[in-house]
Design a protein around this nucleic acid. Structure first.
Length: 324
DNA sequence: AAACGGACCAACCGCTCACAG
DNA sequence: ACTGTGAGCGGTTGGTCCGTT
């Protein structure tokens, strides 16, 4: 829509956040909660765009963030959820308390993908790579009948069994399309394509893969309730191969505010958490204020601060945003 | 010790969606 | 119905660190 990117605006800082900026943002959000992100920089005295502030809060300053290594359970859960949801990191993150979509995405791209590949599992399909190759070959062999090879002229496009893979190549249709259920239906039926797109997401995942728990959107408290039994036991697999799972999940910098040696100390700020009265797994949000809570999803923190702030601060918050 | 390359991760960018006017 | 704006999401980039040569 021709909207200006926040980076285009003048005088706005970019890049890494300084401890002072963190402190300003944290103090402001802690005191007034989250209202309108675009107004936060101005009100907090930051030379940043609102988008940048939002990201910094969500990915780094949020008091409930879990830091450090991903546990084995978390890794298993990410793999399971990725199998079901694909690259929907935000949805995956809602099932991992204290983890951000960005963190999970980075972890997936930098570590889990490689581990799965190492184990001979295609990280995109979650299928064993050799199995896929075998399947492809089998499909190819099945589809190439002598009759078809002898066919002159165009194949019957309305009968997918009349089309072999060579035909697809000639028509510049990606061979990947041949995997899955596509062959079971009329490939060129536009209505079918539409149906296909709605039933299978961009990563090729069908919602049918979703477990009952996921469909119902119930928060997963116990990873074991998520069908790990049917998962490849990556723990034993890797440990048997003397692979340390934690190596990739360890944060080199540990991203601990204390380590910044700055004026801002999470340990010292822990007391602030009591203000929030927020418990993730048990999902305990104290008296949410209708109208102030933008989103009560477990992974969204836009509103919980305000619901638990002292009354005078809530009032202050409203005042602040009414000034705009 | 210096150069190089890979790994990691914070942050940015561009897009879509929802909603208000 | 249309338009503008803000929020949220996923992909990508760029800086930093660390191990290797």
């Amino acid at each position: 829509m021709g909207r200006h990117s926040c980076s285009v605006k003048q005088k706005l800082r970019k890049g890494l956040w300084s401890p002072e900026e963190d402190e300003k943002l944290h103090t402001f959000i802690t005191r007034f909660g989250v209202g309108c992100w675009s107004s936060v920089p101005k009100l907090a005295g930051l030379q940043r765009c609102g988008k940048s502030c939002r990201l910094r809060w969500i990915n780094y300053l949020r008091p409930d963030l879990k830091r450090g290594m991903f546990s084995q359970e978390e890794e298993d859960l990410i793999i399971t959820l990725h199998k079901a949801l694909g690259n929907r990191w935000a949805q995956i993150a809602t099932q991992l308390p204290g983890r951000t979509d960005n963190e999970i995405k980075n972890f997936w791209n930098s570590c889990l993908k490689k581990k799965l590949t190492k184990q001979g599992i295609d990280p995109n399909t979650h299928m064993p790579v050799p199995e896929i190759e075998v399947k492809k070959e089998k499909e190819y062999a099945d589809s190439v009948s002598p009759q078809i090879l002898q066919t002159k002229g165009l194949p019957n496009l309305w009968n997918s069994t009349d089309i072999d893979h060579q035909d697809y190549h000639l028509m510049q249709i990606p061979i990947q399309s041949l995997n899955g259920n596509l062959f079971a239906k009329q490939v060129y039926d536009p209505l079918f394509l539409s149906e296909f797109q709605t039933s299978i997401d961009s990563n090729g995942y069908s919602p049918n893969f979703l477990s009952q728990d996921l469909i119902q959107g119930s928060p997963i408290v116990n990873p074991n309730s998520y069908g790990f039994n049917s998962m490849p036991n990556l723990t034993t697999f890797d440990r048997q191969n003397n692979t340390d799972y934690s190596e990739c999940s360890s944060s080199r910098n540990n991203n601990n505010m204390v380590e910044n040696g700055s004026t801002f100390c999470w340990e010292a700020e822990n007391k602030l958490e009591s203000m929030f009265q927020f418990q993730f797994s048990g999902i305990q949000i104290e008296e949410t204020k209708p109208g102030l809570m933008q989103n009560q999803n477990s992974g969204d923190f836009c509103g919980y601060q305000m619901g638990s702030l002292p009354q005078e601060l809530i009032g202050g918050n409203l005042d602040v945003f009414h000034e705009m």
